[in-house]
Amino acid sequence: MNKLLELRNVTLKYQTPNDEITAIENLSFNCNDGDFVSLIGPSGCGKTTVLSLLAGLITPSSGSILFDGERLSKSNDNLGYMLQKDHLFPWRTIEKNVFLPLEIKKINTQENREYAISLLEKYGLKEFKKRYPDQLSGGMRQRAALIRTLSSKPKLLLLDEPFSALDYQTRLSVCDDVYRIIKAERKTAVLVTHDISEAISMSDKIIVLTNRPAQVKSILYPKLVGDSPLSRRESKEFGTWFEKVWKELH
């Protein structure tokens, strides 16, 4: 399979007035086209930092990141970032929120807008496109946020604990939603989480990180029966995998 993403000995040091913080050190891993990869690690270990690097928001202190075989450039149009909260702009309709990446990237063409709307319609937000975010439930808002990330047709999605702000019930169903949409649109995804069940039920590959500075502790390839996170959570191997990841983390 084609390597979409390759990190080689990436180190990142934050400079602050009082201190130099090594957030990640000699981190190396790959991510294939079409993979769903989870990064799991204790809070504060540097997970968000890894995503910021992948998004090109910060550059590594040393080491290299290759995207599609080329060095990652600062404005990479091939990725979409999704954060903990939906961060839909309350003064824009859902539709206008979804057009935001098109406006920013100056590709706000009729064709691209139609594509974005087709995504909204395909994933059950048709009646809500002229509504404002505060008229939608938390789950629907997160789905709208995902569609906003997809509207500029990125190859790679970066998800930073996208479910952690939701209550448990909603989280399970939104998790299912997001997985379904990402798979249907054939996207590659890197998910950051500290929730073991979430990682196991969604990913092809789990990268367990050490405490700060983040390094790869181990890589697991969970193989569960089921084609959605919910059904995987109910498969009988789930418990065994949960224990495996839990042991790696502690």
Binding site: A55, G56, L57, S75, N76, D77, L79, G80, Y81, L83, Q84, K85, H87, F89, L100, P101, E103, I104, K105, S152, L158
Partner: peptide, 22 residues
């Protein structure tokens, strides 16, 4: 909101766009 700025930056927004859109 710092995270909204981050979101726009991840889309490749420059400072003027951040100002006008957000």
């Amino acid at each position: 909101d710092k995270n909204k700025i981050l979101l726009l930056k991840s889309m490749g927004a420059n400072k003027i766009q951040i100002l006008i859109k957000l």
